[in-house]
Write a protein that binds this DNA or RNA. Structure first.
Lengths: 219, 219
DNA sequence: TAGATTGTTAATCGATTAACAATC
DNA sequence: TAGATTGTTAATCGATTAACAATC
């Protein structure tokens, strides 16, 4: 069963690209002009063929015996990830996590431009958080339409998440970055990316518990 | 090529379990005693067989024609994810993200007990953040050993991440929750879970860019 | 040239989905 | 009983890994 339209790029590959970018940025700093798959694979403890296939997704062409141009590869990966253009975003829910995201300057370098923030708490409305104005959540749809916002970032609680998603959809946004632990229902042309920290924590604690059990066999 | 010891549970399944838990908690509130895979699958837009296989991982046994006991299923999933026991944790790097994590009370319900925080900035050391004391990062290894800490949470910048990981390993921690965009090198018995927000953002913007291109064909 | 590395095709592996018998 | 649902085995699909020819 499929929740949305299927796009062509394999997600596991997509998720590895940002890490390649980090290695490449370091190489760029060290004035390294060319890099081979083998090198990147070693750095990241991956299979070289896998790296080559991942990079091929971006349309890069390498030179046998030489490798890929570091500068070109950085450009291609950024373009593939959509980090070469600006995305205008609204953030809804100025709690701890919302505030942290507003304060995380790094996102600017990925083209994420958080234009405004929204909250339902009157104590937060009218304030500025890391230079971003906080408005009443009621206004989110109207403002989003007026300002042609691309991305809605949901950092509200589970209860309000669907409601906020509906407002964002009404505001004609094209993508939702959802931090609330809730499976959102949206039209098929709206892209949802879930980023629940608890999922990641669950993977960690689950593996730790398993390893304790397995480990005990040998001790 | 493998970076660490392989554990038996399939990661995709593991990543779906927290979402099942959310549906189940809601059902519990509604005093619903039994639930079928079909129902959960519909709620989450997944294949029922997939849900059944995922749930089977936890060791739950259902009743044909009835389904699974909601209460029992919640317990089993929590136990499988390691959310039935307490994990003592240290957090290193009290920036925006670190602060947000310290303030996110929800994690307590997953058994995550953040005992202390660490930073290298003298202005932060000695302060309390959401009730958690901030110490100098130098002390992390010693304190971790003394207090038998299980998990180290890394919320420092890319540059310092490996250094902090080394200190945590010296402190005999068993798992690292790494928010820094850096592939950490640790001994094979230490479990690392990477939680880079930029990866998730990349998936979103990449899909949005692809969908724009594809979409334009039809417009 | 020789040899390292790319690009691509084939083989393997693992996860998802389909089919169906067992059960209450 | 009839039928919905579980549990499990088989088929399909997709991603990873291996093999190798092409290239500079």
């Amino acid at each position: 069963m499929r929740n949305t339209r299927k796009f062509s790029a394999p997600e596991p590959s997509m998720r590895r690209l940002p890490a390649y970018l980090h290695v490449l940025m370091r190489l760029l700093k060290e004035n390294c002009l060319f890099v081979s798959c083998t090198f990147i694979a070693q750095e990241m403890h991956l299979d070289p063929t896998q790296v080559r296939k991942d990079l091929a997704l971006t349309g890069i062409v390498g030179k046998p015996r030489v490798g890929y141009s570091v500068v070109e590869l950085i450009e291609k990966i950024k373009a593939f990830l959509g980090w070469d253009i600006q995305w205008n975003a609204f953030l809804v829910g100025v709690g701890n996590l919302g505030t942290a995201i507003l304060g995380y300057r790094q996102f600017r370098t990925f083209g994420l431009n958080i234009v405004a923030a929204f909250d339902k708490d009157p104590r937060r409305i009218g304030k500025k958080v890391f230079g971003v104005n906080v408005f009443s959540v009621e206004k989110v749809s109207l403002f989003a339409r007026e300002q042609k916002i691309d991305i809605g970032i949901i950092t509200v609680g589970e209860e309000a998440a669907q409601e906020v998603a509906d407002l964002l959809v009404e505001g004609l946004i094209k993508g939702i970055w959802n931090f609330a632990p809730k499976a959102l229902v949206v039209p098929p042309d709206v892209i949802v990316e879930n980023a629940q920290l608890s999922v990641s924590l669950g993977v960690l604690t689950s593996k730790m518990k398993l390893s304790e059990k397995e480990g005990n066999i040998f001790r």
